[in-house]
């Protein structure tokens, strides 16, 4: 596993959670929450929907933790559930009409560090689209291998590698400035062809 090994302390916690110890389960969920939320966010790009999807995923974890046969694969299993819930939310949202403006306060603003870089990166990541952003996030942030990402997404590892290569290329282009129009069209066509 490429950087995705579950630490022995985590394994003990997972086993205690599987044994039905509520405190252990809660600790496990608390620990899994940031990753779950961020991965859901990388698919959905919306804080509230990401929170919904991540909560739903943790609820599934809570229900099914006892059936996890290999605790060392907990993280990959969790990310698979999160990804599934996020895609499910995305599909559901795509079927529905746009939501009405809400009156609730917006999500807290991100930390004001390296504003230019942040804007560039976030804009570039957002421009990728979920089908390419998610493998990128799973690879670079969650440190999963292509095979593991394939298992999480339910696609062949080769497809993952292709998407990663495309995403990298696109991200670099986006970060380095505007592309020539012809190249942009070609790349967009490529991305459109592999988009889920």
């Amino acid at each position: 596993m490429e950087g995705n090994g579950t630490m022995p302390a985590d394994l003990a916690l997972i086993r205690r959670a599987q044994a039905g110890e509520p405190g252990a389960l809660h600790s496990l969920l608390e620990g899994a929450w940031p990753d779950a939320y961020r991965v859901a966010w990388s698919v959905l790009g919306d804080p509230r929907r990401a929170e919904d999807a991540a909560q739903e995923a943790l609820a599934r974890v809570m229900q099914s933790i006892g059936s996890l046969r290999r605790p060392e694969l907990f993280r990959a299993w969790l990310l698979r559930i999160v990804t599934h819930e996020a895609w499910r939310e995305l599909r559901r949202h795509s079927r529905e009409r746009p939501a009405a403006p809400e009156t609730l306060p917006a999500c807290p603003a991100p930390t004001p560090l390296a504003a230019e870089e942040r804007l560039d990166l976030e804009a570039a990541l957002a421009a990728l689209g979920p089908a390419h952003r998610l493998p990128l996030v799973l690879h670079y942030y969650s440190e999963l291998s292509s095979a593991e990402i394939g298992a999480v997404l339910g696609i062949p590892a080769a497809t993952v590698r292709f998407r990663l290569a495309t995403a990298r290329q696109r991200l670099r282009q986006l970060l380095e400035g505007p592309r020539p129009e012809g190249e942009a069209a070609r790349l967009d066509a490529t991305l459109g062809g592999v988009r889920r």
Binding site: W33, P47, E51, C107, R118, V137, Y140, Y141
Partner: peptide, 12 residues
């Protein structure tokens, strides 16, 4: 860059 960007996503 990706890790920093993801790390800056505020987590509720």
């Amino acid at each position: 860059q990706v890790r920093r960007a993801m790390g800056r996503v505020p987590v509720p």
